[in-house]
Simulated scan of single mutants.
Amino acid sequence: MTEATRPARGPGRRPGPGRRPGRSETRETILAQARELFAEKGYDGASLRAIARAADVDPALVHHFFGNKEGVFIEAMRFPVDPAVLLPRILAAPRDRLGETMVRVFLEVWSDPERRAPLLAMLRSAMTNERAAALLREFVTSALFGRVGEATDVPMLNAQAAAGQLIGLMIVRYVVRVEPIASAPEDELIALVAPTLQRYLG
């Protein structure tokens, strides 16, 4: 086959040894790399070209799958854990241990590196990007904390104050990494923070 008759290679993964990944696998690779970059640099600091480079694909393929960087961000930032799964566990706690249970559940979610990456990305990006801020607001007001407040007759102001306390703890522990909070045992943090949350929720 001559150069003139050889079919042109469309946008996709750069050629290399081994099995060529399928469409679904390539898409998930792009999303995984995007989550890491958004977590590290925030929305504004992660370019579409950098995402493509990290995923080892042509930028045209990222455009093909997601349209633009905001499209990648929306797909990559889907909640890594379903709030509907967390809610029954939180609400099953006795009322006088609601604060303790919320801290424990949050720390368990954040201690999983795979679930922590998109949460970190959302927190970093919310500081500079309205789309990320809207996703975080949705989580605070509707997806979890608002529903806890409704189910327990806790005023929305109190539920959001509890959310602020927990989000602040996660920023200090996982984003800014202030010691000794960053490396403190989870049980020690629960004992420290739970009474404050209980005051909001009790």
Rank of each mutant, 00 (worst) to 15 (best):
V175Y: 03
T2P: 15
E25K: 06
E179G: 06
E179P: 07
F145R: 00
P7T: 08
P118G: 07
T152K: 09
Q33K: 02
P11L: 01
A93L: 12
I51L: 00
T141F: 15
E70T: 04
R9F: 07
D56R: 10
A50V: 04
L123M: 15
A121R: 05
V172Y: 15
T196M: 13
E100C: 07
R35V: 01
Q33F: 02
A117R: 15
R14Y: 10
R49F: 11
D58S: 00
A93K: 11
D153N: 10
L120H: 06
V57E: 05
I90A: 13
R35E: 06
R14D: 01
G67M: 03
G10M: 07
I74S: 05
R173L: 09
R89N: 14
A50N: 09
T196H: 12
P80E: 01
A161N: 12
D82G: 07
E28G: 05
E150L: 00
M102A: 08
L87T: 00
D56C: 06
A184F: 10
A34N: 04
P94V: 09
Q160S: 12
R49Q: 15
N158M: 13
G202F: 07
H63R: 14
A93N: 13
R147P: 04
T152G: 06
F66R: 03
L166M: 15
R147F: 00
D44T: 11
G10S: 09
P15T: 05
D82I: 06
I30Q: 00
R53P: 00
L123A: 14
V105I: 13
L107K: 08
S125T: 07
G168L: 12
D44K: 12
G42L: 05
V57P: 02
L91Y: 04
I181F: 05
S24D: 13
L107E: 09
W110G: 09
L48G: 12
L37V: 02
P195H: 02
Q160A: 12
T26D: 02
E3P: 09
F73M: 08
L31A: 03
P185W: 06
A32R: 12
P21F: 01
P195W: 03
V103M: 07
I51C: 03
L169A: 11
G164F: 09
Q165H: 13
E188S: 15
V81W: 10
R116Y: 06
E75H: 10
L166N: 07
T128K: 12
L61V: 01
M1Y: 14
A126E: 02
I74Y: 01
V154K: 00
E25C: 04
T196I: 15
L157Y: 14
A182F: 08
R6N: 09
A92L: 07
A55L: 04
L87H: 00
L157D: 14
